[in-house]
Protein backbone atom coordinates (compact mmCIF):
# COMPACT_ATOMS: atom_id res chain seq x y z
CA UNK A 1 0.00 0.00 0.00
CA UNK A 2 1.47 3.35 -1.04
CA UNK A 3 0.56 5.16 2.13
CA UNK A 4 2.60 2.93 4.36
CA UNK A 5 6.35 2.99 4.68
CA UNK A 6 8.52 -0.04 5.02
CA UNK A 7 9.92 0.77 8.41
CA UNK A 8 7.51 -1.43 10.27
CA UNK A 9 9.77 -1.92 13.23
CA UNK A 10 7.88 -2.66 16.39
CA UNK A 11 10.03 -0.36 18.50
CA UNK A 12 13.53 1.12 18.77
CA UNK A 13 15.49 2.99 21.36
CA UNK A 14 13.74 6.41 20.97
CA UNK A 15 10.64 5.71 18.96
CA UNK A 16 9.45 9.35 19.19
CA UNK A 17 12.48 10.56 17.26
CA UNK A 18 13.29 9.41 13.76
CA UNK A 19 16.37 7.20 13.29
CA UNK A 20 19.07 8.76 11.07
CA UNK A 21 18.09 6.71 8.05
CA UNK A 22 14.52 8.16 8.14
CA UNK A 23 15.48 11.79 8.84
CA UNK A 24 14.74 12.80 5.26
CA UNK A 25 11.17 11.56 5.63
CA UNK A 26 10.33 13.76 8.60
CA UNK A 27 7.57 16.29 8.09
CA UNK A 28 7.24 17.61 11.62
CA UNK A 29 10.14 17.82 14.03
CA UNK A 30 9.43 18.91 17.58
CA UNK A 31 12.14 19.39 20.16
CA UNK A 32 11.77 20.33 23.80
CA UNK A 33 8.40 21.99 23.39
CA UNK A 34 6.86 23.31 26.57
CA UNK A 35 3.63 25.21 27.09
CA UNK A 36 2.13 26.58 30.27
CA UNK A 37 -1.25 28.14 30.92
CA UNK A 38 -2.13 30.47 33.78
CA UNK A 39 0.08 32.12 36.38
CA UNK A 40 1.16 31.59 39.97
CA UNK A 41 -0.74 28.86 41.70
CA UNK A 42 -3.02 28.52 38.71
CA UNK A 43 -0.11 27.69 36.44
CA UNK A 44 -0.63 24.45 34.55
CA UNK A 45 1.97 22.70 32.46
CA UNK A 46 0.25 21.53 29.30
CA UNK A 47 3.35 20.37 27.42
CA UNK A 48 6.48 19.37 29.24
CA UNK A 49 9.48 19.00 26.97
CA UNK A 50 7.96 17.15 24.03
CA UNK A 51 10.27 15.59 21.43
CA UNK A 52 8.50 14.02 18.50
CA UNK A 53 8.92 13.42 14.79
CA UNK A 54 6.05 12.94 12.37
CA UNK A 55 6.70 11.18 9.07
CA UNK A 56 5.34 11.96 5.66
CA UNK A 57 3.09 9.33 4.14
CA UNK A 58 1.80 8.27 7.53
CA UNK A 59 -1.14 8.84 9.75
CA UNK A 60 0.19 9.64 13.20
CA UNK A 61 -2.13 9.55 16.15
CA UNK A 62 -1.88 11.33 19.45
CA UNK A 63 -3.82 9.57 22.17
CA UNK A 64 -4.16 9.93 25.87
CA UNK A 65 -6.57 10.86 28.65
CA UNK A 66 -8.44 14.12 28.73
CA UNK A 67 -6.30 17.08 29.72
CA UNK A 68 -3.01 15.35 28.89
CA UNK A 69 -2.06 18.00 26.32
CA UNK A 70 -3.06 16.35 23.04
CA UNK A 71 -4.96 19.30 21.61
CA UNK A 72 -2.38 21.77 22.88
CA UNK A 73 0.34 19.85 21.08
CA UNK A 74 -1.75 19.78 17.92
CA UNK A 75 -2.35 23.54 18.18
CA UNK A 76 1.37 24.18 18.60
CA UNK A 77 2.21 21.96 15.63
CA UNK A 78 -0.44 23.68 13.50
CA UNK A 79 1.00 27.09 14.38
CA UNK A 80 -2.15 28.44 15.97
CA UNK A 81 -0.68 28.47 19.47
CA UNK A 82 2.78 29.65 20.47
CA UNK A 83 4.90 27.37 22.61
CA UNK A 84 6.83 28.80 25.57
CA UNK A 85 10.08 27.09 24.65
CA UNK A 86 11.43 24.52 22.26
CA UNK A 87 11.23 24.39 18.50
CA UNK A 88 8.65 23.30 15.97
CA UNK A 89 10.00 22.53 12.53
CA UNK A 90 7.57 21.85 9.69
CA UNK A 91 9.01 20.64 6.41
CA UNK A 92 12.40 22.13 7.26
CA UNK A 93 11.08 25.50 8.36
CA UNK A 94 11.33 26.70 11.94
CA UNK A 95 7.68 27.70 12.31
CA UNK A 96 7.99 28.51 16.01
CA UNK A 97 10.22 31.46 15.09
CA UNK A 98 7.92 32.84 12.41
CA UNK A 99 6.15 36.14 12.88
CA UNK A 100 2.38 35.91 13.27
CA UNK A 101 1.81 37.08 9.70
CA UNK A 102 4.27 34.63 8.20
CA UNK A 103 2.86 31.80 10.27
CA UNK A 104 -0.67 32.67 9.12
CA UNK A 105 0.47 32.62 5.52
CA UNK A 106 2.30 29.32 6.10
CA UNK A 107 -0.84 27.78 7.59
CA UNK A 108 -3.01 28.86 4.68
CA UNK A 109 -0.73 27.11 2.20
CA UNK A 110 0.60 24.07 4.06
CA UNK A 111 -1.91 22.97 6.68
CA UNK A 112 -5.38 21.48 6.46
CA UNK A 113 -7.67 21.36 9.47
CA UNK A 114 -10.39 18.98 10.57
CA UNK A 115 -12.24 19.97 13.71
CA UNK A 116 -14.22 17.95 16.22
CA UNK A 117 -17.36 20.05 15.67
CA UNK A 118 -16.73 20.37 11.91
CA UNK A 119 -16.87 24.20 12.19
CA UNK A 120 -18.67 24.59 8.88
CA UNK A 121 -20.15 28.01 8.22
CA UNK A 122 -23.92 27.46 8.44
CA UNK A 123 -24.74 30.09 5.81
CA UNK A 124 -22.54 28.46 3.18
CA UNK A 125 -23.27 25.39 1.08
CA UNK A 126 -21.12 22.29 1.29
CA UNK A 127 -19.19 23.29 -1.81
CA UNK A 128 -18.68 26.85 -0.57
CA UNK A 129 -17.51 25.58 2.81
CA UNK A 130 -15.06 23.24 1.16
CA UNK A 131 -13.78 26.07 -1.00
CA UNK A 132 -12.82 28.37 1.91
CA UNK A 133 -9.08 27.52 2.08
CA UNK A 134 -8.76 28.27 -1.63
CA UNK A 135 -10.61 31.57 -1.22
CA UNK A 136 -8.28 32.45 1.66
CA UNK A 137 -5.45 31.61 -0.72
CA UNK A 138 -6.75 34.20 -3.17
CA UNK A 139 -8.77 32.05 -5.58
CA UNK A 140 -11.91 33.51 -7.09
CA UNK A 141 -15.17 32.11 -5.75
CA UNK A 142 -16.14 30.33 -8.96
CA UNK A 143 -12.77 28.61 -9.40
CA UNK A 144 -12.58 27.66 -5.75
CA UNK A 145 -16.09 26.22 -5.67
CA UNK A 146 -15.47 24.26 -8.88
CA UNK A 147 -12.34 22.72 -7.36
CA UNK A 148 -14.20 22.04 -4.09
CA UNK A 149 -16.92 20.25 -6.03
CA UNK A 150 -14.31 17.93 -7.54
CA UNK A 151 -13.00 17.04 -4.08
CA UNK A 152 -16.53 16.54 -2.76
CA UNK A 153 -17.26 14.23 -5.72
CA UNK A 154 -14.19 12.21 -4.75
CA UNK A 155 -15.59 11.83 -1.25
CA UNK A 156 -19.00 10.73 -2.49
CA UNK A 157 -20.65 14.05 -1.63
CA UNK A 158 -21.31 15.22 -5.16
CA UNK A 159 -25.07 15.18 -4.73
CA UNK A 160 -24.89 17.19 -1.52
CA UNK A 161 -22.62 19.96 -2.70
CA UNK A 162 -25.45 22.52 -2.75
CA UNK A 163 -26.75 21.54 0.68
CA UNK A 164 -26.30 23.67 3.76
CA UNK A 165 -24.67 22.13 6.87
CA UNK A 166 -28.03 22.02 8.64
CA UNK A 167 -29.28 19.73 5.87
CA UNK A 168 -26.43 17.25 6.35
CA UNK A 169 -25.87 14.44 8.85
CA UNK A 170 -22.87 14.48 11.16
CA UNK A 171 -20.93 12.08 8.94
CA UNK A 172 -21.70 14.10 5.86
CA UNK A 173 -20.62 17.30 7.58
CA UNK A 174 -17.35 15.69 8.57
CA UNK A 175 -16.85 14.61 4.97
CA UNK A 176 -17.33 18.20 3.90
CA UNK A 177 -14.78 19.15 6.54
CA UNK A 178 -12.38 16.56 5.08
CA UNK A 179 -12.93 18.05 1.63
CA UNK A 180 -12.25 21.51 3.06
CA UNK A 181 -9.04 20.28 4.66
CA UNK A 182 -7.76 18.69 1.45
CA UNK A 183 -8.97 21.12 -1.20
CA UNK A 184 -5.77 23.15 -1.25
CA UNK A 185 -3.51 20.07 -1.17
CA UNK A 186 -1.79 20.83 2.15
CA UNK A 187 1.40 19.06 3.19
CA UNK A 188 0.18 18.58 6.74
CA UNK A 189 -3.28 17.63 7.89
CA UNK A 190 -4.23 18.12 11.54
CA UNK A 191 -7.39 16.48 12.81
CA UNK A 192 -8.82 17.11 16.24
CA UNK A 193 -11.07 14.30 17.44
CA UNK A 194 -12.62 13.80 14.01
CA UNK A 195 -14.89 11.00 15.22
CA UNK A 196 -15.86 12.36 18.62
CA UNK A 197 -19.21 13.72 17.46
CA UNK A 198 -20.06 10.65 15.38
CA UNK A 199 -21.52 7.25 16.15
CA UNK A 200 -19.28 4.20 15.88
CA UNK A 201 -20.21 3.15 12.33
CA UNK A 202 -20.03 6.67 10.94
CA UNK A 203 -16.78 7.26 12.79
CA UNK A 204 -15.19 4.23 11.18
CA UNK A 205 -16.42 5.27 7.75
CA UNK A 206 -15.04 8.76 8.20
CA UNK A 207 -11.68 7.44 9.37
CA UNK A 208 -11.47 5.04 6.46
CA UNK A 209 -12.30 7.86 4.09
CA UNK A 210 -9.80 10.16 5.76
CA UNK A 211 -7.07 7.58 5.54
CA UNK A 212 -7.80 6.79 1.93
CA UNK A 213 -8.12 10.41 0.81
CA UNK A 214 -5.57 12.13 2.98
CA UNK A 215 -2.56 9.89 3.40
CA UNK A 216 -0.08 10.55 0.60
CA UNK A 217 3.69 10.08 0.38
CA UNK A 218 4.26 13.83 0.48
CA UNK A 219 1.78 14.58 3.25
CA UNK A 220 1.73 13.95 6.97
CA UNK A 221 -1.51 13.42 8.83
CA UNK A 222 -1.84 13.94 12.57
CA UNK A 223 -4.98 12.80 14.33
CA UNK A 224 -5.76 13.58 17.94
CA UNK A 225 -8.25 11.08 19.33
CA UNK A 226 -9.22 9.24 22.44
CA UNK A 227 -11.52 6.90 20.51
CA UNK A 228 -9.76 3.54 20.88
CA UNK A 229 -11.97 2.04 18.16
CA UNK A 230 -10.07 3.99 15.52
CA UNK A 231 -6.52 3.53 16.85
CA UNK A 232 -5.82 0.84 14.28
CA UNK A 233 -6.00 3.43 11.50
CA UNK A 234 -2.80 5.08 12.74
CA UNK A 235 0.65 4.14 11.46
CA UNK A 236 2.28 5.54 14.57
CA UNK A 237 0.57 6.11 17.84
CA UNK A 238 1.96 8.56 20.35
CA UNK A 239 0.51 8.25 23.81
CA UNK A 240 0.62 11.31 26.03
CA UNK A 241 0.09 11.72 29.71
CA UNK A 242 0.46 14.76 31.91
CA UNK A 243 2.05 16.87 29.18
CA UNK A 244 4.65 14.28 28.22
CA UNK A 245 4.90 11.80 25.40
CA UNK A 246 5.12 8.54 27.27
CA UNK A 247 5.04 6.00 24.47
CA UNK A 248 5.28 5.84 20.68
CA UNK A 249 4.39 2.63 18.92
CA UNK A 250 4.46 1.80 15.24
CA UNK A 251 2.23 -0.61 13.41
CA UNK A 252 3.63 -3.90 12.28
CA UNK A 253 3.53 -5.02 8.65
CA UNK A 254 0.81 -7.53 9.49
CA UNK A 255 -1.41 -4.83 10.98
CA UNK A 256 -0.75 -2.66 8.01
CA UNK A 257 -1.85 -5.37 5.64
CA UNK A 258 -4.96 -5.90 7.71
CA UNK A 259 -5.95 -2.24 7.56
CA UNK A 260 -5.10 -2.12 3.89
CA UNK A 261 -7.48 -5.01 3.28
CA UNK A 262 -10.20 -3.28 5.26
CA UNK A 263 -9.73 -0.16 3.18
CA UNK A 264 -9.96 -2.15 0.00
CA UNK A 265 -13.28 -3.54 1.26
CA UNK A 266 -14.51 -0.01 1.91
CA UNK A 267 -13.40 1.13 -1.51
CA UNK A 268 -15.16 -1.85 -3.09
Amino acid sequence: METLTDHTVASHQSPAIAPPELAGNVAVKIRGVTKHFGRGEQRVTALNGIDWDVYKGQMSMIIGPSGCGKTTLLSVIAGILNCDSGSVNLFGEEVSRFSDGRRTKFRSVNIGFIFQQYNLLPALTAAENAAIPLVIGGWSKSRAVARACEVLEGLGMGKKKESFPSQLSGGQQQRVAIARSLVHSPRLLVCDEPTAALDHETGLTVMEMLRKAAVRPDRAVIVVTHDNRVFHFGDRIARMDDGRMVEVTERTAEEAVLVSGEQDDVAA
Binding site: A78, I80, G101, T104, K105, R107, S108, V109, I111, F113, F115, N119, L121, I132, P133, I136, G137
Partner: peptide
Amino acid sequence: LKQFGSLKAMGATNLR
Protein backbone atom coordinates in the same frame (compact mmCIF):
# COMPACT_ATOMS: atom_id res chain seq x y z
CA LEU B 1 -16.38 34.02 16.92
CA LYS B 2 -15.75 30.32 16.43
CA GLN B 3 -16.32 30.69 12.72
CA PHE B 4 -13.94 33.62 12.60
CA GLY B 5 -11.53 31.49 14.63
CA SER B 6 -11.80 28.72 12.03
CA LEU B 7 -11.06 31.21 9.28
CA LYS B 8 -8.08 32.54 11.21
CA ALA B 9 -6.81 29.00 11.80
CA MET B 10 -7.13 28.27 8.10
CA GLY B 11 -4.98 31.27 7.30
CA ALA B 12 -7.25 34.30 7.07
CA THR B 13 -5.39 37.35 8.35
CA ASN B 14 -6.77 39.74 10.97
CA LEU B 15 -7.03 42.42 8.31
CA ARG B 16 -9.32 40.29 6.18
